[in-house]
Write a protein that binds this DNA or RNA. Structure first.
Length: 549
RNA sequence: GGCCCAUUGGUGAAAUGGUUAACACAUCGCCCUCUCAAGGCGACAUUCAUGGGUUCAAAUCCCAUAUGGGUCACCA
């Protein structure tokens, strides 16, 4: 009985060899290849998009290939709709892969791009490993392994299935064959040759030179239930056959690098470059921790869509964590897009990138302020149709009117920056709509002048003697100033500050009355623009509401 | 616990042995201003986790300690 007999017993129907597959997926002649390889286990995590951006950037920079590969080897955690979510997210953020398999459509010559469809390929590689005596079936039960772990912990030894603890590696081929024939369940383990005491050098594109201990664990490469490979093995086979040149993955993978190195070495395959990205962390009180799907809503890309952050702002904020010199670069190259940025892994922070919502808000405000009213209208309308019935209704009352509101203080050199995301638009503009204004319980935010008689005095004087719908902005303000003088308010604030006792107040106080009476709010965009949009009738109506009370 | 990684202001972060430790966010102040949002100007680390060492010179190199993180699955 030989290893070959064992291999044939386990994989009787696998005829293709590694060479066959290498012929099927020939060299890409040095082309840069990156891949985004998410597991379909739920919503899209911000760390995923963060990595996808890096993959995308590297591929674009080198005129290479960006692959989307679905890593669905864990059937227990799989969520059916997750692939769709991934699809939506990468398209939404404009990270379009060159090779992929989505809703049955395959693009690219190096597929399948879904791991569960690559079973035979993995089996061919595992079969070879068994033939050369570098992999073997392991019949240890979960409980046995658990006992082993407890015992190792108790003895303060390294936990794991290695060396003398790797019980099944010493089984004779006859014993293995017998157990298999009896129908005992098994996994396939890699048979390590490594010595943990020995070190080797490893270069990571982010961290630089590292010295790691060699792997000596006989880790599982094929699972018993669905006969699919574990991550480690799929990484070897897929990234070799797809000719991946740059593996971008989270720092949590750093500790399994020795496994991957030994695997690549035993096959004689060339190791890709590794970019182990710092984890996205979050500050909570005094402690910093990995951003988590469960606890942090902002970990999900849905969070940003639901609140209506423009995708550009989200990418921008991620870019600032990816390379800290990005912001400066973008300031100097304001007409370029993030794709033009030359990503440099060694410029990446080696500690955790802190995801900062305040920063996102700032970037988002900035981005929205630079949009044209037309563009903002389109984007916010698109958003409202999906996420906000009430904003949708508002917009549909009169689209031109809505656009005009958005255009207040926008079409100028230093546009107004007060919209952080689409979900807050409604709270900024509701008073421009009569239905909402009239139905709302009004809380007028009067400031310095609270006296009802004085408020009425100002309003009636303004309506009767000064207000003219056709005035231009200068005239409009000149009239307010004239009114101030008449009512004994300072028309000039500096003047007022010099001698406050000479006046009842100043032009700001008077303007506030005109503003609050119209909008209930003490803080609004340019009053002149608001009055222009509301028009004479509605202004009179709102002022009379106060005058007649 | 073993192994690995990290540690610069309130926060992110630059600096790779040599001027007053960039820049950005936040905060505060002043200016501008009809309010607000902006914008302009300015303030904000006697010091780079701590302790040693190397050097004419250290945030930068070395050692130790502390703290934080990652990982030790038939999860990726």
């Amino acid at each position: 009985m030989t290893n070959k007999d064992l291999a044939n017993l386990i994989f009787p129907n696998i005829d293709k060899t590694i060479e066959d597959y290498e012929k099927l997926y020939p060299s890409r002649n040095g082309k840069t290849v990156t891949r985004f390889a998410p597991s379909p286990t739920g919503y899209v995590h911000i760390g995923g998009i963060y990595q996808a951006i890096i993959d995308y950037l590297i591929a674009k920079r080198d005129n290479g290939v960006f692959i989307l590969r679905i890593e669905d080897t864990d059937q227990k955690r799989e969520v059916k709709t997750a692939v769709e979510l991934i699809d939506n997210a990468i398209h939404y953020y404009g990270l379009i892969p060159d090779e992929y398999e989505l809703s049955g459509k395959i693009v690219g010559e190096y597929g399948p791009y879904v791991q569960s469809e690559r079973k035979e390929i993995y089996h061919a590689f595992i079969k070879y490993l068994i033939e050369i005596g570098r992999a073997y079936p392991c019949f240890c039960a979960k409980e046995e392994l658990e006992e082993l772990r407890v015992m190792q912990e108790h003895k303060k030894q390294r936990t794991g299935y290695y060396g003398k603890y790797a019980k099944c590696r010493n089984l004779s081929i006859e014993q293995m064959i017998e157990k298999i024939k009896k129908g005992q369940p098994y996994v396939i383990r890699f048979k390590s040759n490594g010595d943990f005491e020995e070190k080797f050098k490893f270069y990571d594109e982010v961290k630089g030179d590292l010295e790691l201990s060699k792997n000596d664990e006989d880790f599982v490469i094929m699972k018993s239930d669905n006969l699919l490979p574990t991550y480690h093995f799929a990484h070897l086979v897929d990234d070799h056959l797809m000719h991946t040149t740059h593996v971008v993955r989270g720092e949590e993978w750093l500790s399994s690098v020795p496994k991957h190195v030994e695997l690549f070495e035993t096959f004689g395959f060339e190791l890709p470059k590794y970019i182990h990205t710092p984890l996205i962390v979050k500050k909570e009180g005094n402690s910093i921790r990995k951003i988590s799907k469960r606890k942090d809503p902002e970990a999900s890309m849905n969070y940003y869509s639901e609140l209506g952050y423009p995708k550009e702002a989200v990418i921008e904020s991620l870019m600032t964590i990816i390379n800290s010199n990005y912001e400066q670069w973008h300031e100097e190259n304001f007409n370029k897009e993030f794709i033009d940025f030359e990503y440099n892994p060694s410029k990446m922070s080696s500690s955790g990138g802190l995801y900062d919502l305040e920063k996102l808000n700032k970037l988002s405000k900035e981005f929205i302020s630079k949009m044209t009213a037309e563009h903002l209208y389109e984007e916010s309308y698109k958003w409202a149709k999906e996420y906000s019935e009430s904003l949708k209704n508002i917009i549909e009352i009169d689209k031109e009117y809505y656009k005009n509101i958005l255009n207040i203080e926008r079409d100028q050199e230093k546009p107004r920056k007060d919209i952080i995301n689409y979900s807050m638009i409604e709270s900024l503009i509701w008073y421009m709509y009569d239905d909402i204004f009239n139905s709302k319980e009004k809380e007028y935010e009067w400031k310095n002048i609270q006296d009802k008689i004085e408020i009425k005095n100002i309003l009636s004087t303004y309506i009767n003697e000064y207000y003219d719908e056709d005035d231009d902005k200068d005239m409009w303000f000149d009239k307010i100033k004239s009114m101030c003088e008449k009512l004994n308010y300072a028309s000039n604030i500096k003047e007022y500050k010099k001698n406050p006792e000479l006046y009842k107040g100043n032009v700001a106080d008077v303007s506030t009355i005109l503003r609050v009476a119209l909008t209930t709010k003490s803080n609004t965009p340019d009053l002149y623009c608001i009055m222009k949009l509301l028009g004479r009738d509605r202004i009179l109506e709102r002022y009379n509401l106060i005058l007649n009370n």
